[in-house]
Design a protein around this nucleic acid. Structure first.
Lengths: 227, 227
DNA sequence: GGTGAATCGGAACGGGCATTCCGTTCCGAT
DNA sequence: ATCGGAACGGAATGCCCGTTCCGATTCACC
């Protein structure tokens, strides 16, 4: 009994949903959360059955929402990039409002929070992916905008050398977060240790003469992961 | 040193081998090389059939020398650690002989060469491994000895802050080499870019007052990967 | 040349996992 | 109270991959 003109999407998500749909919606978020946890813990090779079990649903329910394992991973990635974009904007707001926010600068603060954040590391694409999906592209653009603000601010504040790019920030995210065989707290501490080192290096390079060559361009970075 | 793991004692290896054994020996090194390449390219999930094909032998021949996929990966890891130990000793010799070897210091030079070296990244254990095998333990000790020399030298030269440990070097190796979706040359350039940043940070921390907390201890690091 | 042993390559086996299919359950409307 | 259909859980399916097995091949030695 769908409404006569109902298109492919039902967008009003705020109202109290009818019971059965409510469960579906709840299942969906449960699946996403379970997937995030399971993939973070066991890596890419975790089974769909595992995800389903963690979410407390059957595999069928997982597949109804995400037609394929790759699609599920994709959804996770989009979510991760959106979160990162949100964080970048948030930090940019802070540092632009209070110029003396901290010695780390906006980029450093962003990286630190992203590293210790609950969302987990940004997932990398499954492999030979096609052209990048629209929703990911949009999220990616938002992220870039936020990073642009951070980099501009820090450069003006003199804690970033010329040649440092927004793509550098993404690369650092990758570099600063290899999975370590330690409990989360210890691993985070180690990651922050190296972040601190890099930030010192950045500040030193910014202060003294020794220049840093030009970093990768954003579109190079995005392009390299797709197609 | 051809003996992959251990075997019945037929170790007279120097003389020109009889034809058939020569082929076996050749196959063995071909398999090792193929495995290194295939795993480096396709990651851990590459199939044994792929390895065999790359080596130009049948799967049966691979399994005759390496009873299991994990055993093959193990052999690769041991090889990698041995190479790293050799490199560390070599660089230590250089910097100890010519004190002004370069601004990078011994640790920086070691990291740079290890990153761009042909041996590829150090593989991480398969997962829940048991206690660490004897040959790996020996290679690991050699590596530690070499790193100890490098760290001592650099600290004396004033390019490393107190608190920086040999285990830090290993962690840095992990941090500095995430796989990047770029051709080898470009990826290497990026890795070296971040290595340069870290080294700047290290030098800065060494010069100015701001201390670096104590890094991980070697045995913690080794222990975390096994058992 | 002929023979036995060691090695080879690849077909066959078994298990695990992504994906599909279907009988059951539950909600809302009649 | 009953019915239609949407959502559910999990069994069944098909494929890929690690591993095993075996007949063919090759070489050393006679």
């Amino acid at each position: 009994m769908p409404s006569p003109t109902d298109g492919p999407a039902d967008e009003r998500a705020d109202r109290p949903l009818p019971g059965r749909k409510r469960e579906a919606r709840a299942n969906d978020t449960a699946v996403l959360a379970a997937a995030r946890e399971v993939f973070a813990t066991q890596g890419h090779g975790a089974s769909m059955a595992d995800v389903a079990r963690h979410a407390g649903v059957g595999v069928g329910s997982v597949y109804r929402r995400y037609p394929t394992k790759d699609a599920l991973v994709e959804a996770l990635r989009v979510h991760g990039v959106r979160e990162a974009a949100r964080l970048a904007a948030e930090v940019a707001d802070e540092v632009e409002r209070t110029p003396r926010e901290g010695a780390d600068g906006g980029v450093g603060t962003f990286l630190a929070r992203q590293i210790t954040g609950a969302t987990g590391p940004l997932l990398r694409p499954t492999g030979a992916t096609g052209p990048l999906p629209a929703d990911l592209a949009a999220a990616t653009d938002d992220l870039r905008a936020g990073l642009e603000r951070l980099v501009a601010h820090d450069r003006a504040a003199g804690v970033l050398p010329a040649g440092f790019t927004t793509a550098d920030v993404m690369q650092l995210l990758l570099h600063l977060r290899p999975s370590l065989p330690f409990p989360r707290a210890e691993a985070d501490a180690l990651h922050l240790r190296y972040l601190g080192l890099v930030l010192s290096g950045l500040r030193a390079r910014s202060g003294d003469g020794e220049p840093l060559g030009d970093g990768p361009r954003w579109d190079e970075w995005v392009g390299a992961w797709h197609d």
